Simulated assay, not measured.
Amino acid sequence: MIPFQPYSFAAPTTEETDYFDYFYDEPGSEPGTLNIEPTAKPSRIILIDYDENDAIRKVDMTPNALLPYLGKNSISWMDVQGLGSEDVLREVGDIFDLHPLLLEDIVNVPQRPKLDEYQDKLMFIAHMVRRHEEEDGFVTEQVSFILGKNYLVTFQEEELEDCFDIVRERIRNNQGKVRQQKVDYLAYLLLDSLIDGYFPILEHYEERIEDLEEKILATPERKLMQEIYSIRRELLALRRLLWPLRNVLNLMIRDDSDLLTQEVQIYFRDCYDHVIQLLDILEAYRELASSLMDVYMSAVGNKMNEIMKFLTVFTAIFNPLTFIVGVYGMNFENMPELQTRWGYYIVWVVMLFIAVTMILIFWKKGWFKTTYSLDEK
């Protein structure tokens, strides 16, 4: 048996991330056309077949090798990793009798999360999220589920590790009751793992918002405003993924299909509650991110007020000194002070006395105490 690998991801660069990209067909294209991306990974099929007594895992399966498992009483999970091999995908579609429009939604990514029922199969689409390894933000991957009588087919964009490893471990080690349940329970476990993957992402945004708020209060630089817009945009993209998923789960817990038992529909209600919780947290963070702009503008205003206060105090000190210098700079002949031997020094003493007195008065009134701190970097 091939060992299960630890959770790992490779993250694309920010330039490759488009949070608001949905696939659309070219005008006039034939329905069911598969558009394979040139950068799509080659398709690789991994099979996990299990019952109460045993579980096997096979990799690099061919589509025809899956046929014997369709008629078995055991539960079969066929995981297709990579959407770059059109021949393999069409063979899988023929074996499982997938409607051309259904296969089109699976291959032409990304699609909006949705639920469709085709004859004796149930198809639903969700999006798995993960953080960038080296940058802020997140990346998404579409995961499509085909639920049959005794089988579950999943389609992923990448052939790398995913958030389903914990489910694979449960199957392999016979933990919990997954091997005693039907295939709809397996679909629940996978979808629940996918939804739980959103919580670490939102925790990261909480940390980013708190850190950004501290930076804004310390040094309201222009680049921080750009980061505020980035956070708001990314949170909006997360909402765009979760809101339709909420509708999908709402339909699943009310579906009267024979593929979803009432017992498992109760578990899907738990997934629905998790999505509602995620949306509540998300809306709170969106409001915090929006308020950061007000904090930024207030911080900039406070900084400007401190600068204006300093200039005002500076001007107030030098105004009487400028007046004295201006008086004795007039070109009149009958100015008695100009003939005084110590007049120059007297004027200096008077000017210094006025300046020091005003500084002491301003200091006592607290006008030199700043209400805005600038952290040096």
Rank of each mutant, 00 (worst) to 15 (best):
Q5K: 15
T13H: 10
E15P: 09
E16T: 00
D18R: 12
F20H: 11
D21Q: 15
D21M: 08
S29R: 09
G32L: 02
E37M: 14
P38T: 09
T39Q: 14
I46A: 01
Y50N: 09
Y50F: 15
D51K: 03
M61H: 05
T62W: 00
Y69L: 00
Y69N: 01
W77L: 04
Q81E: 13
R90Q: 07
F96A: 00
L102I: 15
N108A: 00
V109A: 03
V109T: 03
Q111A: 06
R112F: 04
R112S: 08
P113H: 07
K114P: 06
L115C: 12
Y118C: 02
Q119V: 01
K121H: 07
M123C: 10
I125V: 13
A126T: 11
H127E: 02
E134P: 06
D136F: 01
D136V: 00
G137V: 02
G137R: 04
F138W: 02
L147D: 02
G148C: 13
G148E: 14
Q156V: 00
I166H: 07
I166G: 06
E169A: 14
I171P: 07
R172S: 07
N174W: 04
K177F: 08
V178K: 13
Y185W: 08
D192C: 06
S193Q: 09
D196M: 07
D196A: 09
P200Q: 13
I201C: 06
E206D: 13
E207Q: 15
I209M: 10
E210C: 00
D211K: 09
D211H: 06
E213L: 04
A218H: 03
P220N: 10
R222L: 14
K223D: 15
Q226R: 14
S230A: 11
S230H: 09
I231S: 12
L235P: 03
L238V: 06
R239E: 03
L241K: 10
P244H: 08
R246V: 06
N250H: 14
M252T: 10
I253M: 13
D255W: 05
D256P: 00
L259F: 05
L260E: 05
E263F: 07
I266D: 13
Y267G: 06
F268P: 04
F268T: 07
F268M: 06
R269L: 08
C271M: 04
D273G: 11
Q277L: 10
Q277K: 08
I281F: 11
L282N: 05
A284H: 07
A289P: 14
L292S: 10
L292V: 14
M293D: 01
D294N: 12
S298R: 05
A299Y: 05
V300F: 04
G301N: 15
N305G: 07
I307V: 09
I307L: 05
I307F: 04
F310G: 02
L311G: 02
F314C: 10
F314D: 09
T315M: 08
T322S: 15
T322H: 11
M330K: 03
E333S: 14
N334G: 12
M335C: 06
P336G: 13
E337F: 01
Q339M: 12
Y344D: 05
Y344I: 14
V350C: 12
A355D: 09
T357R: 01
I359R: 03
L360S: 08
G366Q: 15
T371Q: 13
E376A: 09
K377N: 10
